[in-house]
Amino acid sequence: MGRINTQLDTLKADGRKALVPYIVCGDPHISITVPMMHALVASGADMIELGVPFSDPMAEGPTIQLAHERALRQGTSLRDTLAVVKEFRQSDNKTPVVLMGYINPIEAMGYQEFSRQAMAAGVDGLLPVDIPPEEAGPLIDALKTADINLIFLLSPTTTIARAEKICRFGNGFLYYVSFKGVTGADRLDIDSVVEKIDQLRTLTSMPLLVGFGIKDGQSAATVSAVADGVVVGSVLVNRVATLYEKSASDEQIIGEVSRIISEMRSAIDER
């Protein structure tokens, strides 16, 4: 059993919810990413979603778009991202790492080559936002040989028929996008999330994590009460950007994102 299943099963057995921070690899520069990942785990993160920089991040709002641009200005590539995971694994063999991004850099590397290198680096899951199950056949096959979970998205517009299909293809967990929109938008409607999660529970026993619109301890606690966990991205990335623009040190940047995660951890656990 992979790290993702082990971690999510353990949390479930303990009656706890997963807290998953998203950061962009190489934002604002590559040497901050590994220490930041360790600090996030120390502050209560159960899994790390690591954004793979891409030139055309179509699903992102302005905050995460700019993070991709910062990372690309430093030349951060998919290979660099895999090297970061490998380095992280040297002192953390437990926390699952999911790569989130767009399919083209993976196509450019080749599905087989990516799967081989990602497995060697210690990657546990892949969440490409622009490849629905209809197009994912060859990718599913390649990742299977490397024991890497392919994580699919569900959204408010996903019909029951589609959800059934996606639940069949997905493994590890399913990621529910809480609203129609891009990352970082302030459109979270908790009632509609509850309704959809309840519906999805009837279709699958896989863990359901919710992302988009989780911006503070309160939203994290409210959403994680109905889901198996939450993904937090823009609020962290925005903090990185603000501090970086003020020429803050790496220690200050890492300290601040860690503080946000530990506040969310407390809010989720106290509920």
Partner: peptide, 9 residues
């Protein structure tokens, strides 16, 4: 069709 899930329907 390589788009995010929200647009598939």
């Amino acid at each position: 069709k390589f788009v995010s899930e929200t647009l598939m329907s």
